[in-house]
Design a binder for these strands. Structure first.
Lengths: 152, 152
DNA sequence: ATACAACTTAAAGTTTACTTCAAGTCAAGA
DNA sequence: TCTTGACTTGAAGTAAACTTTAAGTTGTAT
């Protein structure tokens, strides 16, 4: 079973032009061509496209993904290098998760903040609150904000 | 206590030019100026800068952050709108977390994949593996990859 | 045989978020 | 007062990842 660029684009929810761009950047050296020059994707190419997508999602720039793909094409001699790259990406994603968790925490606080403000009809309600009025999970954030407000 | 743009930049680990860019884009309407035109940041401005950072981390574009800041400057009449924006950002971050989790899972699989390949000296080891050789948490991914390899 | 949708390329254009540059001003210490 | 480092602006430049355009080719269906 083979696919055209348009079929693959639909499967991956990408534009065909994006796949051509990836090809031009050297990410798709494994893609075959028909005698007329049309790209022919194999079912198994989806595996490589999936890892390309995965590396992209991990925040890796196109040029570095190309380096990885080049190593893949070189065969078993590059297993160690590829492992090292995957390991670094893994660590990078853990970092991103940590950061997103902090972002989420502040958004959760702000959600609560505006829910309280909405109920009271004014943001000023927060100036009248004491520690007992603030949910435990937000005490750290609220405290930090309060300190900065009070510093004159 | 007040700060110059350079001091704030250091605190937030940003370039001064980035803060000036944010100001030009309308993200910092609350920042005061000296008689000579120098920006003067209040301690409390760090609170707003923190929420700007948070929205940025959540993937919100600069232009939309400006909209949020504008609403903040309008006062209590916009509490509902601000809550809606925060809620949508919260949902967006949950989505990102979900996607990152999938990315991490595939990277974990690939880590295992290359560790096995390294031990065997060849990636071909994976063609000889049966379900019992594959850790439970990778069975889904490995199965999908195998099916695509075998489809001719 | 012909139509036509989908493919091809190279090159130029777009978007976002900065960064750099040039020329000049401010303000704190010697 | 003078020096000097940090500030100011507007404008131009950069980087990454696409997207669009124009002109042409391929291949399938009638």
């Amino acid at each position: 079973m083979t696919y055209t660029i348009g079929e693959i684009a639909k499967k991956l929810n990408l534009a065909s032009s994006t796949l051509r761009y990836y090809d031009k950047e050297g990410l798709l050296p494994f893609v075959e061509r028909s005698s007329g020059g049309i790209r022919i994707f194999q079912e198994s190419d989806l595996n490589t496209l999936e890892i390309i997508e995965c590396l992209k999602e991990s925040g890796m720039p196109i040029a570095e993904i190309k380096t990885f793909i080049d190593l893949c094409m070189e065969g078993d001699a590059t297993i160690e290098d590829r492992l090292a790259i995957i390991q670094r990406r893994y660590d990078a994603v853990l970092e991103q998760q940590k950061k997103l968790q902090e972002t989420l925490h502040l958004l959760e606080y702000k959600k609560w903040y505006y829910e309280q403000a909405r109920a009271a009809g004014t943001c000023a309600i927060h100036d009248t609150m004491t520690a007992e009025d603030i949910p435990l999970e937000f005490l750290d954030v609220a405290q930090k904000i309060l300190e900065r407000k009070q510093t004159k």
